[in-house]
Every structure is written in C-alpha cells, then in structure tokens.
Write a protein that binds this DNA or RNA. Structure first.
Lengths: 219, 219
DNA sequence: TGATTTTGCCCGAATTTTCGGACAACCAGA
DNA sequence: TCTGGTTGTCCGAAAATTCGGGCAAAATCA
C-alpha cells in the first residue's frame, strides 16, 4: 500500500482536563537585597520566584512555553530592561514582562508599554501591589498556555477534511489511536495492544497496513 | 445529478482560527460628566463604551458570555460597586470588574480585590492608565472566551474516553460520521451515502447496526 | 556470553464487512 | 389513482478483518 509516511505527528499531550500550574516569576534585579526581598514577598504569596542578578543569568530560563512571567528592573549595569523585553518577546511574544521603573518615570513607563511590556511598576513598590500585578500577569499567562494546549489537542483530533470518504476517515482515526497507544506505551507493542483491547497479532496486522514500526515510538 | 456538496468541514466549525472581538466596556458611573468623559477616552482608544448611570441600567447588559468588561464606580447613590461585583460574578465568575475607588481609599480597594474585582483604580484617574488597565482586562476576557469556545469545540470532537477499546472507539467514530452526514443531507440516505463515498446498501447496513433511522435526521 | 523477551511477519480458519441486486412498503405529486 | 422516488430489509458472493499459533531475527537483560 502506501509508504510509511514520516509523520512526526502526535505528541504526548498532558490531557485536556488537567490544570496548568503557572506561578513562576523570573526576577531580574541587580540589587541583591531588593531581589531577595521581592523573592520573599512572592513566596509568601505562594508564588515561585526564580531570582537572577541580570539578563545573562536569566536568559537561559526564558523560553517559549515558560510557565510563568518575568519581572525585571529597567535600569541595570550590564543590560537594560528593554533588552530583557526584546529577548523575551523574541522567545515568546505572549510571555508577560513586568518592568520596574524608577519613581515617577512616566516617559520610560510609556515606552515600556509601547515596546510590549505587560505592565510597569514604580520602583518603591508595596509588596501587595506587586503581588496583585504578578498574579494578574500569571493568570493571563496561564490562559495563554491553556489556549495553546487545547488548540494543539484540537488539531490532532479533527484531521478529516470533509471530502474524505468514510473509510478514509476511519482509517485515519484508527491510525491515530494506534499511534497514540504506542506513544503512551513507549513503543511496546504488546502493552499497546492490551490498552487497545485487541490481541497482539491484530495490532501488528494494523501496524503493517499503516506502515508503522514500534521502534519509531520509543522515548 | 447534483454533486456531493463541497462540504468544507466535518461540521460547521465556528472556525477555531477566527478572532473574538472583545472590546466592550460597561461603564457604571452616576456622575454624568465623568461618565461621558470616560466614554470619550475609551472611544479614542478604539474601545466600545456602554455608558450607564447605575446598576439598574447596567444589569441587563451583564450576562454570561459578555464580550467585554465592567468598569464601575464604587460609591453610588442607589447601589454600591460591590453589588455590581456580586451580580456580575454570579452571572459569570470570569467577567472582569474594575472598580473605581475614591482617592487613596486603600482599605476599600483591598476589599474590592478580595471580593473578586479584577483591579481597582483611584478616582482621579488619568485616561492613559485607565485605558491600559481596561485593555489588559479585555485581553484577559478575550482569552477566557476563546478558551471556552475552543473547549466546547473540542468536546464535540473528542469521541472516546481513553479506556475504550479500539473497536469501540472506531464504532463510535463511525456512528458520529454517519450521523453527521445524515444531518447534513437532511436525512436523505442516498445522498448521505454518496457524500460518505460508500454505496447506499452499505450505509443501510451500518445504520441498521447502530439502530439509526433516516427519519430521525429530517429537518 | 547465554537466556529471555520482543519484534515483525506468515498461515489459515472463523468471522465480519462490503456491496450489487432485488423487493415490499411508504410517501408525494400529477 | 398512477407514478417516481425513497426507505428499510434480505440474500449471497467477494473481500477484508480478526486472531490464535508459530517462527526467525533482533533486542534486551543477566
């Protein structure tokens, strides 16, 4: 029949129902006492601070699906908060960055928002206000991540174009279910067969039909 | 002989891609000049103000999937902002309410947040800050609505719980596809068969197996 | 290394599905 | 009432699928 398509396909989705935890806050602040003080405030609020002393130290934590937000000082010796902002937006445009500006530095604050910061806070900042703001940002982030997650799930679920034949659609569904089972069982055919409720040989029959090999599903 | 209709999708799929517009702001403020002033600020920011002079006038706009947020004064002659908050949270717990407090009334502001307000603003509020805050709230609201929308979509697509047998899952899928085709063809078995790419008799076989009758799918 | 498990494939019989053909019953319009 | 189209069911042969058993090669483990 058809060649074993090199479809990389289904990933191991953490199931739609489960809640995404999103409470990390990367703190970028060169002033050590202030940094630890902020970190403490966050821990008291049940958040998960990741304190760093500057851009260089922070950048390895900043990645595309990071489950949290960034809180960065804007004036630092080595880099500016805007560098953080650019870097973060490049990694993930929907990753909220909250910038700490100097007292009453309205023009810079405006510039921050225009550059894509999620929010700014004036430097001598009461902990409660800080936490409130971060919680809103984290909530926002959580929604964004959930959204991506569900969309990904949707894509794997509705692949039939309407012009497909009943047989084609069913074959496609069957192939996906088999692939999913194989992934979940780490490429173990026997266990996948068991979880699908069919005998081992039958699963091999179907796999052969679709050109699937167990090896390709190993972690 | 009519062609099988050029069906674009498996169902009329409110298209996951399309963007939800969410820029309405219900303004609840008894002071008329201030109210219109706020409304103007919002219009300048490309938002869609719905000005009301109080809770009574506003409550009919507040409903479960409202595509916007609420901005309410906290001190009003007939009702308090907290009444608005309670009402809104009852209609939809994820509908953001932003409360306008008097100048430096921190305790009330705290109480507002604890009661579930999305954010509070101090009364003599610069338009830019107001608009920024509202935009964040609207963004949040948009995400919530998108989320609901996609989840609903996913539920209609996700046919089998993981514990189902391969055969059971495929049968279920087959039944759904057949029902879908019958619905789209208004219960005409012949046309449904054509759109599914199988002969009429085969479709009858399958329908019999599932206990389906065409009559039940007529409009 | 040797023992054990797993893979991937083939056989063959039992079962299921496919699908053309046929037919009675029903309904709607002329 | 006649007529054309549809529904729902049955038959039967061809085709496909299921699934137990078996086996050689590969992988894994001790």
């Amino acid at each position: 029949m058809s060649q074993p398509k090199p479809r990389c396909g289904i990933q191991n989705h953490p199931s739609v129902g489960d809640v995404i935890v999103c409470q990390k806050v990367i703190i970028i602040e060169d002033d050590t006492p202030l940094r630890t003080s902020i970190a403490q405030s966050l821990e008291l609020a049940n958040l998960e601070p990741i304190p760093t002393n500057g851009f260089t130290q922070a950048r390895r934590s900043i990645r595309s699906n990071f489950a949290g937000v960034i809180l960065s000082d804007i004036q630092m010796p080595d880099h500016s908060g805007f560098d953080v902002l650019d870097f973060a937006r490049n990694k993930d445009p929907e990753l909220p960055v909250i910038l700490l500006t100097g007292h009453s530095d309205v023009p810079t604050a405006m510039k921050a928002l225009k550059s894509g910061a999620y929010e700014y806070l004036e430097k001598p900042c009461e902990p409660t206000r800080l936490v409130e703001t971060l919680k809103r940002a984290l909530d926002h982030r959580k929604l964004v991540l959930e959204n991506r997650h569900i969309r990904a799930e949707l894509e794997t679920q509705l692949p039939f174009d309407g012009s497909a034949t009943l047989h084609e659609a069913l074959e496609e569904t069957e192939r996906r279910l088999i692939e999913k089972a194989l992934i979940e069982e780490n490429g173990k055919v026997i266990e996948a067969a068991q979880s699908l409720g069919i005998p081992r040989n039958t699963l091999y029959d179907r796999m052969a039909k679709f050109g699937l090999v167990a090896k390709a599903f190993r972690r």
